[in-house]
């Protein structure tokens, strides 16, 4: 029921965005935040992605799955734990250690001779373990709301990184005239203003391995950077190749233009 109401509010918010009528649940446009990976040459801040992974692992992963992620992704080219000595991400010791720290049934088809699923330590080729077996279980544990999968969350939300960052840092005291249902939190960056996710980040809830101060803004930036990388892991290769392709096309265009001038040199047209 709650979802229906949020959904109705979302439609209303979208429908009347931009009109003068301010009412409860007005959605704020996302904050403008500078990202290290912005622009045609921007690269991911590796340290930030690593810290972001720590946040995901210690904070988000208890509710949010990342079904498309494999442990090996963490060590692939452009990933947070990439190391030159291990060109094959499956051999990366950090990732092997991370994967190995989870023991569970990874695949219902992986069975022993009695036909029972095998429980074993994770391998780099295994997927990030999901907190819930299915959508129903996820809803049941979260008051009816479904914590979305985060693999593509930056791409799957209008506003991308800025939206996510705003959402994570956008929990305010609820305005007087709002009528939040129990279990809902006020967040004006969320469509409808009422979100079922409790404020996930708070000062000092984790201690960064690299000693960075874990302020809410810092954590929001890091986890957003991590999720941005997770949704677009080939971004750096893509941009580098793009620069080369454009340079090539530019030279090619100049040569063909010169040829064009030559061919048409004495022709009136």
């Amino acid at each position: 029921m709650k979802m229906t109401r949020i959904f109705a509010a979302a439609i209303a918010a979208l429908g009347f965005a931009g009109t003068a009528a301010a009412f409860e649940g007005e959605q704020y446009p996302p904050k403008e935040h500078h990202w290290h990976h912005d622009g045609p040459f921007g690269t991911y801040d590796r340290q930030s992605v690593q810290r972001g992974y720590q946040i995901y692992q210690e904070v988000c992963a208890s509710c949010h799955s990342m079904d498309l992620m494999r442990f090996r992704n963490l060590a692939q080219r452009g990933g947070p734990f990439e190391e030159e000595a291990f060109p094959n991400p499956n051999d990366n010791p950090v990732v092997m250690q991370i994967a190995g720290s989870y023991t569970r049934v990874w695949d219902q088809d992986e069975v022993n001779d009695d036909g029972d699923p095998i429980e074993r330590a994770g391998l780099p080729s295994d997927a990030f373990p999901a907190p819930f077996a299915n959508v129903q279980m996820a809803r049941a544990s979260n008051g009816g709301a479904y914590p979305p999968d985060l693999s593509l969350i930056v791409k799957a939300r209008t506003g991308g990184e800025n939206y996510l960052y705003s959402l994570l840092t956008g929990y305010y005291d609820e305005p007087e005239d709002s009528h939040l249902a129990p279990g809902m939190y006020y967040n004006p960056y969320f469509a409808g203003g009422a979100i079922a996710m409790a404020p996930p980040l708070a000062e000092g809830i984790i201690e960064y391995a690299d000693g960075t101060e874990a302020s809410v803004e810092q954590m929001a930036e890091d986890v957003t950077t991590f999720l941005s990388w997770a949704g677009d892991p080939h971004m750096e290769t893509r941009k580098q190749m793009g620069v080369m392709v454009l340079l090539y096309l530019l030279i090619f265009a100049i040569l063909v233009y010169l040829a064009y001038r030559q061919v048409w040199a004495n022709v009136k047209h």
Binding site: I251, L255, L258, A259, Q262, N266
Partner: peptide
């Protein structure tokens, strides 16, 4: 093209370069 007696080497160079780039 360029039958007006323009220096052939430069002309050919452009065609060859464009073809090579392709």
């Amino acid at each position: 093209p360029g039958a007006d007696g323009q220096e052939p080497s430069r002309r050919d160079f452009i065609y060859i370069a464009a073809g090579g780039a392709a």
